[in-house]
Amino acid sequence: MKKIEIGHGSGGRLTRELIQKVFLKYFNSEELKPLEDAAYIRLKNHNTALTTDSYVVRPLFFPGGDIGKLSVCGTVNDLAVSGAVPGYLSIGIILEEGFPIGSLEDIVKSIGETSRNAGVRIAAGDTKVVEKGKCDGVYINTTGIGEIARPLFPDNISPGDAVIATGTLGDHGTAIALARDEFAIKSRVESDCAPLNGLLTPLFEIEGLKWMRDPTRGGAATVLAELSDLTGLGVEIFEDKVPVREDVRFISDMLGYDPLYLANEGKALIIASDESAGKIVGILRKHSLGHNAAIIGNISSKFKGARLRTRIGGERLLDVLEEDMLPRIC
């Protein structure tokens, strides 16, 4: 068995062989092993968060990750920034006829390792195969279930609250752009793809925590512009306080990108009371994923919209991204 055949999606012998030899090799939760039409899962309470996402990233393998790792991190992070503790995932995989089994196994192994590192269990899965040329190798859909520990809503936000970034912005978008080999640029930039539940869960105990979001497609600028629309409040961030890697900034200048609009897959934006912001940053910086955490701005009732205060004292409006600079970044 070296390549995916149409029969691997038939539901028959080849499907079972693929499940047994590839998927169950790396997905070994008790919930999945019976291979029934539905999995039985255990929840401690009835306050449940549910999210789903699909992944079509190109290329499938990139510095710092791959589509498998990304599919776990993206869904885990959506739950974590919503104030939930991730517990279970379902994995749906669409494969192109002829896709190498070895590459599939690398992706499935990555899913298994990342889910274990994030402390989540794969409880259900599905596989379909389409004709050659009808799919770009692999597409993945993940659904995540978590238990709500700290409900977070934008109407909790007040003027004077602080805006916090958990780390450098624009890493993932830059890594994907360079991995496509469309530019003759050599760089050590890697995707920041990582599960954030270990970083963010300790913050659930802090009273001043108001709201969180992971700035994926559209980047930090789009998230802050949408937040202003949701709350009717102004959001101001300061260019000299926003953490951006120097190589990311340099490459963005070369290619005409803006790091504030580039995707991130291992960072969060946090709104917290001014009184608790310093404590939150201190907690974040103790974690390996939060060493570069910083307070980057504040919430205001004096204006509406999102804006960037530049290093030279100017002002630039931040709006929702209109056109995707880098399609298929997740």
Results as ranks from 00 to 15, higher is better:
Pro327His: 09
Glu105Gly: 03
Thr201Val: 02
Gly133Ala: 07
Ile122Tyr: 05
Leu35Thr: 01
Glu105Cys: 05
Pro202Ala: 00
Arg213Glu: 12
Leu35Tyr: 01
Met1Phe: 10
Glu246Pro: 02
Ala263Cys: 12
Phe99Gly: 03
Ala225Gly: 06
Val281Glu: 04
Ala306Met: 07
Glu207Asn: 08
Leu24Thr: 13
Arg245Gly: 13
Gly278Trp: 10
Met212Trp: 02
Val72Ser: 03
Ser110Tyr: 00
Val235Asp: 12
Asn264Asp: 15
Ala39Ile: 05
Ala124Pro: 04
Pro154Gly: 08
His8Pro: 03
Phe62Arg: 07
Lys132Val: 03
Gly266Asp: 08
Lys2Asp: 14
Met1His: 12
Leu178Val: 06
Glu131Val: 07
Gly125Trp: 04
Arg307Ala: 09
Ile271Asn: 10
Ala124Gln: 08
Ile295Pro: 05
Gly173Met: 13
Phe250Tyr: 14
Ala294His: 04
Leu260Gln: 11
Asp161Leu: 10
Ala293Glu: 03
Ile176Phe: 03
Lys109Asp: 00
Ser276Tyr: 07
Leu284Pro: 09
Leu178Ser: 06
Gly305Glu: 10
Thr114Lys: 06
Glu239Arg: 15
Ala294Ser: 13
Lys132Gln: 15
Thr142Lys: 11
Gly125Lys: 00
Arg116Asp: 06
Val244Lys: 13
Thr201Asn: 02
Ala293Cys: 10
Pro151Val: 05
His8Ile: 01
